[in-house]
Design a protein around this nucleic acid. Structure first.
Length: 712
DNA sequence: GTTCTAGAAC
DNA sequence: GTTCTAGAAC
């Protein structure tokens, strides 16, 4: 876990008794005259931590000694609970190796490289007088010139936890400030910092580095996403980063014999209107919701299809939906209406639908006179048994996916593989749970019901897909009788109930409450949220955070399906993360142009509250009425907040991310500038208004974007 | 994520 | 008494 955060313990300045001591071996690396001794003196002067300086030039009663002496003194100091500064040139790997063997596995091994220009080192060492090692005057120049070519920069692989590179006096000052501010229990983020090298991501000009990468280049070409609409569909690269787990852009469907496209093999969901029959929901309102939800989900089902079915020819709801869908230009190849018996679609109407939605009752039992009774009758007792295994009851707005046993008559006769039972809102006073004309609640529940239903269908579609090595789904969809249904792995809660809030994440299921879906909805249908959207592209949406925690707080939201949070991110998402970073950086710069005092940090919450991967672009004033509680503060000011640069770096180097956890919310309220501890939020906020201390660690780590440079 | 509010802390 | 936190509900 890398972060700006110095303190990993919850301690007031100076630490407290009994707290974990973080010992450090700090190996200074630099030519004579590079400023190693000054560095040590300055750190020791301001630090509250006990440091022992181990200086080879003065180790023998003020005179020059040997490396072995240094090792011995350092070992004794560490034994004594002190941290040590190894003040010798340590110019190559071999020189450093023995010092890295000191201490325990708990001891942090740091290097500070004072890689100042040779000319400066020579000039300083020549001019100095009273040098401990008597290396001054003309001989000093000789020594520096002799040593310079042997200089071997340190690497983490030598055994360092952290390496910090300084190239000028400003860098050195920052490093002194950083180490000088470390208290007993503090530790610093691991990794290389400040290195001048293009292959180091913690660099000035990271943006231009990103730009050199073809952000679309390593995504494979994918077929056009016919589900995207308007501005979203313009680019032929639209699918690049969107081609994701869970996304089903193009299903190449062939029959096993002829290889020709066969509609009978395309996953299709047949659904009747929910709640408009016995539950007496207003038809106009219901049709609006149906079309809205179809529009939202149609881009997620690839070539799978949705068919709305009604038994009667004069069905008003069917007609309303048909008209409204046409007005919205919803692809009629993917969504259509059908008049017929939902239990006999294939045999009676030649329409193969492998998934049937059943508007059921609270107990999910046969009964009533409508579709529910007909479905249970057609599917036989097998459906009742299979349903009972999954859920006993449903709440309004929820659904449950039931894989149909192959012994069910419906399976053989109609090719139905799954039934999705769904319960809508009831507006009929003669039935239980009547909402008594409360259409605010009713619409919300009906929307949830369709959303749950379609989300369930998406999960079934996913379960049918077989991916080849390129991640393309090529296998035909054939409901084999003997094929073990993966429907059982559909997102189900303990109760067996599914709703749109549950999403598979790797082997686990993450629950997203309805309130946590707002960003997801914006990402999927930015056109419906024009009031809040600042920018839309094929892969990202930018919005202002509705509850900003600072003067400026934007979110760059990924538009990719299947990327709910960092937990879903893998190496293949690096181009998308870089694009998000670039967009975030662009907005930060734009805002800085308007207000030069703003400083920004770009990063992700380890465990976000809101669904859909989003990058925070947040100014570091934290001046906002919406910053109210401890969690707000700690989520941006502990390693729970992962800097975008670091996320990308970790993925590139390790192929995986080290996420923070909620234990950070137990921490103290420490000012991110001066590191002072504040007893509560109001006091912290009051303190923040006046604290002008520079954001030393952020600057040093290269995480801060300010008017003085993208990364100072 | 926010809002509301009981009750703990001051 | 007021301030502040934290848990429940949404």
């Amino acid at each position: 876990m890398e972060s700006m955060e110095i303190d990993r313990g919850n301690t007031p300045p100076g630490g407290e008794k009994g707290e974990e001591l973080k010992q450090i071996i700090l190996v200074l690396i630099g030519l004579p005259g590079s400023g190693k001794s000054t560095f040590c003196e300055e750190v020791a002067k301001v630090s509250s931590r006990p440091w022992t300086r181990v200086c080879q030039d003065a180790i023998k009663n003020g005179k020059s000694g040997t490396k072995i002496m240094c090792l011995s003194v350092a070992a004794a100091a560490l034994e004594d609970g002190k941290s040590v500064l190894i003040d010798r040139c340590n110019i190559d790997k071999e020189q450093r190796a023995d010092f890295l063997k000191l201490g325990s596995s708990e001891t942090e091994k740091h290097a500070v490289v004072l890689d100042l220009p040779n000319s400066l080192c020579i000039s300083r060492s020549v001019k100095r007088s009273g040098h401990e090692g008597k290396l001054q005057g003309g001989r000093a120049a000789q020594v520096v010139n002799h040593m310079a070519p042997k200089k071997e920069l340190p690497k983490l692989s030598e055994g360092f936890n952290r390496i910090m590179f300084c190239y000028n006096e400003k860098d050195v000052k920052e490093a002194i400030k950083l180490y000088g501010s470390l208290r007993l229990c503090d530790s610093l983020p691991s990794g290389c910092f400040g290195q001048k090298s293009l292959d180091s991501m913690v660099q000035v000009g990271i943006r231009s580095f990103f730009k050199k990468q073809d952000t679309s280049g390593n995504a494979k070409s994918v077929p056009e996403d016919s589900g995207n609409q308007g501005a979203e569909a313009g680019s032929h690269t639209a699918g690049d980063a969107l081609e994701k787990k869970g996304k089903f852009d193009k299903v190449v469907v062939t029959t096993s014999t002829s290889g020709s496209t066969a509609s009978c093999c395309i996953p299709t969901l047949a659904f009747p209107s929910i709640s408009t029959a016995d539950f007496q929901f207003d038809l106009e309102k219901a049709s609006d919701i149906i079309v809205e939800q179809v529009e939202e989900y149609i881009s997620r089902i690839g070539e799978a299809k949705l068919v709305m079915v009604d038994l009667s020819h004069g069905s008003k709801i069917l007609s309303l939906v048909k008209t409204k869908a046409a007005k919205k230009n919803i692809d009629s190849n993917k969504f259509s209406t059908f008049v017929g018996d939902i239990t006999q679609l294939r045999s009676g109407g030649g329409l193969s639908c492998n998934v049937i939605a059943n508007p059921t009752n609270r107990e999910i039992k046969p009964g009533g006179g409508g579709v529910n009774a007909a479905v249970f009758k057609a599917a036989g007792f097998e459906l009742e048994v299979a349903t009972k295994e999954r859920a006993e009851k449903l709440a309004a707005g929820e659904c449950v996916i039931v894989p149909l046993p192959s012994s069910s008559p419906w399976f053989g006769a109609e090719g139905v593989t799954h039934v999705i039972h769904v319960l809508g809102p009831n507006m009929n006073p003669k039935r239980p749970d009547c909402l008594k004309d409360d259409y605010t609640k009713g619409c919300k529940i009906l929307r949830e019901a369709y959303s749950s239903l379609f989300e369930g269908f998406v999960s079934i579609v996913k379960s049918y897909g077989n991916e080849d090595q390129n991640g393309k789904r090529t296998a035909p969809f054939v409901p084999e009788k003997n094929k073990k249904s993966k429907g059982s792995s559909s997102p189900l809660s303990k109760s067996g109930v599914n709703n749109q809030n549950q999403v598979e994440q790797g082997s686990t299921t993450k629950t997203w409450n309805p309130w946590a879906q707002a960003l997801h909805k914006i990402a999927m249908s930015p056109g419906n949220h024009k009031d809040v959207v600042l920018e839309v592209s094929d892969h990202v949406v930018v919005i202002k955070d509705s509850y900003p925690k600072a003067q400026q707080h934007l979110l760059v939201i990924a538009r990719c399906h299947g990327l709910d949070s960092l937990a879903d991110v893998s190496g293949e998402d690096i181009p998308l993360l870089k694009e998000m970073h670039d967009v975030g950086l662009k907005w930060a710069e734009k805002l800085i142009l308007k207000n030069k005092s703003l400083e920004f940090r770009l990063g992700y919450h380890s465990i976000p509250s809101m669904r859909q991967l989003h990058l925070h672009v947040i100014s570091q004033d934290f001046d906002s009425t919406h910053l109210k509680n401890k969690k707000h503060w700690l989520s941006f000011n502990t390693p729970f907040f992962l800097d975008s640069v670091n996320v990308i770096k970790q993925l590139e180097e390790d192929g995986e991310l080290r996420l923070g956890n909620e234990s950070f919310f137990d921490g103290v309220l420490r000012c991110h500038r001066c590191l002072s501890v504040n007893p509560n939020m109001p006091k912290l906020k009051n303190h923040l208004r006046s604290c002008k201390y520079p954001l030393a660690v952020l600057i040093q780590s290269g995480y801060l974007i300010s008017s003085e440079g993208k990364y100072r």
